[in-house]
Design a protein around this nucleic acid. Structure first.
Ligand SMILES: [Mn+2]
Ligand SMILES: [Mn+2]
Length: 550
DNA sequence: ACGTATAATCAAGGC
DNA sequence: GTGGGTACCG
DNA sequence: GCCTTGATTATACGGTACCCAC
């Protein structure tokens, strides 16, 4: 593929585009600090602007002047000077010993510090010296003979905030621009109004940043109690932020489960994250508070948050009932799934069991494909493309989105009811086949969370269109749409296309020691209830086909 | 909605 | 030297 | 049988420069 050649300062151009974008849409949500930053940035000499952007895109926050080489910028020190005078770079930061170790190479450190035993690891050396050097110092104090300079980035918080405002998340970064220009990422072009933006209130941005900070501290091992104090005790009004708060609480509770079950319980109670209630029941059970556990479980059963929760409750309730001496509830009926047992020679090369079964079942007139979730997700993405990329207010707000912002919100389908109905109607009329072929041609390569293009080959698509009855597709898609997040996984490993009716069958492969997962059981139950051809294939290895692993 | 996560799978141990 | 992990690049 | 835990794999842009540890 031919890559367009880029202007030397392409990244600066991109950053200007971003700043302009933000200024246009967020004028009312920018604080004095951010406004001043944007204004002052434009006043800087170009090499200084370029250097700042380079550093913003790097890890930092500390950089050695001698390690910065940018031909398009030229002299780093002259480019840096204006940045230090506005206070965006600090040239004399106090460095802790660990920071010094991160910044300098082994060889450089050896000139500044007493050497340890030969061949000592860098981290051991640091550990050994740490007690002797508790105080931070400027580089010149650590290493008097060096002529090097350290630059410490001072504007990370502002730049992070701007990035968040642009993308509506913090996992995308400014390289999206160049990667898209190069065609590495291709996004569907969705029209949206010039005032579309990820946030409507400054408080939402603050809240997002605050939660993000708490999450990072959780990951760094900050004490749970400290974080609990930091996280708002009341739900956010914004459902999107509230789900993030709930998830953070859930993770907090998870962390506390091991050493403080009571705290964990209390935190789960405050979280509306999926599964939080089931964890409460489980923890209560573990604490032998069977009455409370049973009460919560039965209440949950009356108003389950999901099939997944019902599934968990159905396992816990009989145990709890037994503990409480209640009448033994009827055992859950086993899934009446067709089963098949195979005894196969263990593949030479440690080949996956799914592939072994695929090859065993494969017939010239009944080909088998190892597809897992990719086939159905792919077909779904193709058919519902107009719904996924419908220009609804608030769904799209920058050009680098692979999906609408509300994809996994419960009202996704509801908000697009008419379009979804049209997509379903194509299954009834039969026009979907031509639509999907066309759409595959048209959209191949574009980022879409449901389509892994390399797996969904034209050949596989054709076979699926020929074999799977549209009414079956309809049933499968209906379940997906009911919960796009939960129901995009758990689909069977293999699909076999065959003559006659229904024209295909789905097969979940289970090797020795493997069991059906919850999400697989849910798909299994759904397919059985709707007469969709599904089965489970259990595999044993032939004795002597290969020595067991010790 | 990529907290370098979910996925799925395998293995082992506890009740 | 080599291999592995990380950061950076476009 | 159920539940947990941890390990382990793959993918997610692909290539390269650099540093470190062995
Ligand atoms: Mn599988
Ligand atoms: Mn399987």
């Amino acid at each position: 593929m031919q890559r367009p050649t880029l202007a030397p300062l392409y990244y600066l151009t991109n950053f200007h585009r971003a700043l302009g974008w933000i200024s246009e849409r967020y004028g009312d949500l920018l604080g004095d600090q951010e406004q001043a930053f944007i204004a002052a940035f434009q006043q800087l000499p170009l090499p200084s602007q370029a250097l700042l952007v380079r550093l913003v895109m790097r890890k930092g926050p500390l950089f050695l002047a001698s390690k910065l080489h940018y031909p398009e910028i030229g002299c780093i020190r002259s480019a840096a000077a204006p940045l230090t005078s506005v206070g965006w770079l600090d040239t004399k930061p106090e460095l802790s010993l660990p920071q010094l170790f991160q910044l300098l190479t082994r060889a450089d450190l050896a000139q500044a510090l007493p050497a340890g035993p030969a061949g000592q690891r860098k981290d051991a050396w640091l550990a050994e010296l740490s007690p002797q050097y508790p105080e931070p110092r400027p580089l010149a104090a650590w290493h008097p003979t060096t002529s090097d300079t350290v630059y410490a980035m001072q504007v990370t918080p502002i730049c992070e905030r701007l990035r968040l405002m642009f993308f509506g998340n913090l996992h995308q970064d400014w390289s999206e621009f160049v990667l898209t220009d190069l065609g590495v990422f291709q996004y569907e072009k969705v029209p949206f109004s010039p005032h579309s933006r990820a946030f409507q209130h400054r408080q939402e941005i603050d809240d997002y940043l605050h939660l993000h900070d708490c999450r990072q501290r959780l990951h760094q091992g900050t004490a749970i109690t400290e974080l609990l104090d930091a996280i708002p005790s009341q739900p956010y009004g914004n459902p999107w932020l509230e789900s993030r708060r709930a998830r953070l609480l859930f993770q907090l509770a998870q962390q506390s489960e091991a050493d403080d079950a009571a705290t964990a319980l209390a935190i789960y109670q405050r979280s509306s994250h999926p599964g939080a209630r089931a964890r409460q029941v489980r923890l209560l059970e573990r604490q032998q508070q069977y009455t409370t556990a049973y009460a919560l479980a039965t209440a949950a059963q009356q108003q389950p948050e999901s099939d997944a929760e019902l599934q968990q409750l159905a396992r816990m309730l009989p145990r709890l009932a037994r503990r409480l001496g209640q009448a033994k509830p009827a055992p859950a009926p086993a899934l009446p799934a067709p089963e098949q047992w195979l005894e196969l020679p263990r593949p030479e090369s440690g080949q996956a069991v799914e592939l072994a079964v695929r090859d065993h079942l494969h017939r010239i007139d009944a080909p088998v494909h190892y597809v897992e979730n990719t086939l159905l997700n792919g077909l779904f993405g193709l058919l519902f493309w107009p719904a996924l990329y419908a220009p609804l207010p608030g769904a799209f707000f920058h050009p680098f989105q692979a999906a609408p912002a509300d994809l996994y919100r419960p009202d996704f389908q509801q908000r697009r009811a008419a379009i979804c109905a049209q997509c379903f109607a194509e299954l009834d009329s039969g026009s979907y086949r031509e639509t999907l072929r066309q759409r595959y041609q048209e959209k191949a390569g574009l980022q879409c969370p449901f389509i892994h293009w390399p797996w969904l080959t034209p050949d596989l698509l054709e076979q699926a269109l020929a074999a799977i009855p549209p009414q079956h597709l309809k049933l499968l898609f209906q379940r997906m749409l009911a919960d796009l997040q939960a129901n995009r996984t758990g689909l069977p490993d293999l699909i076999q296309f065959q003559a006659g009716h229904p024209g295909y069958r789905m097969i979940e492969v289970k090797g020795p020691g493997d069991k059906l997962q919850d999400n697989q059981k849910r798909w299994l139950a759904y397919c059985l209830a709707h007469d969709l051809p599904i089965s489970v294939c259990y595999v044993r290895w032939q004795a002597g086909s290969e020595a067991d692993t010790p």
